[in-house]
Design a protein around this nucleic acid. Structure first.
Lengths: 145, 145
DNA sequence: GCTTGACCTAAAGTAGGCTTTAGGTTGTAG
DNA sequence: CTACAACCTAAAGCCTACTTTAGGTCAAGC
């Protein structure tokens, strides 16, 4: 694999060099060395960054992503973690699907006030169930917190 | 509709009172008045907050949500905006679906190194296409940015 | 009459994810 | 030679979405 500098990585990925340095600092990517003071990257950093961007788009934090796709990952990718994350995305997809359906309906619903629309109310009730589940779990006993 | 105080709203929604005050300040919710210095809410704030939570879960910013579900929305909900947002979610769902498939595959893939797995590479290529589309749009001409 | 709990405000603080700034080092083109 | 682009570092700054802090009001119960 060829060696490229940070500007080339930035150009190929459309990621600012400042973000690349930040990622290196956080341990998400690694340069294979220096040429003077300039970082030298192996071209495989491109694939690794692709995974990172994929994870970002899926809503994972940089810390989570570092665990999902560790450096020197030849041997260390945790398959259990990956399927857990896949399941997490699956739940997100379900939530988004009902949100999308709700919005789509709201956009064409003839009711003047969406809150009067039976179909929209059904969607709200589904969400409210999740809410009340949450609020009974972490019950605020006093002000704030 | 009955009148409730901020603590009741907090309990019903499982949202900290500090967040409720913050939402009011940002114009996402509105109290119908004061009882002394205490806010008084109409119970319909519960439904409005349900919409807000729905939007949060779908990944919209508070500013976006304020536009999607304006206060006094009886007349003013922008249906075009709602279907645009629905379409946005739809694109997100598609991205998440390929991410989930990628992770699911990676979790069971027999290849020691995922980057060697043909099926995983296919997924990466799909993402890379989106990346290069993005990087040619906003092309960094000089250092940083 | 005084403590307590639930409320109030303004302002500062926090975490994540970067960007910007300020100042410095190189390789290369003119 | 020297200008300049492209790189470098450390540290500060920024945005979102809140939370925390510090200090105060008020009604209810003892």
């Amino acid at each position: 694999m060829a060696e490229i500098d940070i500007g080339e990585v930035s150009r190929r990925m459309g990621i600012p060099v400042s973000a690349l340095r930040f990622y290196e600092q956080k341990g998400l990517i690694r340069s294979i060395g220096r040429n003077g003071l300039r970082r030298v990257f192996n071209t495989d950093v491109i694939q690794h960054l692709t995974l990172i961007m994929l994870g970002r788009e899926a809503g994972f934090s940089l810390d989570e992503i570092r665990n999902m796709f560790p450096l020197g990952g030849k041997t260390s990718i945790d398959r259990g973690l990956l399927s857990a994350k896949a399941a997490e995305i699956d739940r997100t997809i379900r939530r988004l699907t009902s949100m999308r359906n709700g919005l789509q309906h709201a956009a064409v619903c003839p009711e003047a006030n969406h809150l009067d629309c039976p179909s929209f109310q059904r969607i709200l009730r589904v969400v409210e169930k999740r809410q009340s589940a949450r609020s009974s779990r972490k019950n605020s006993l006093t002000d704030n917190k």
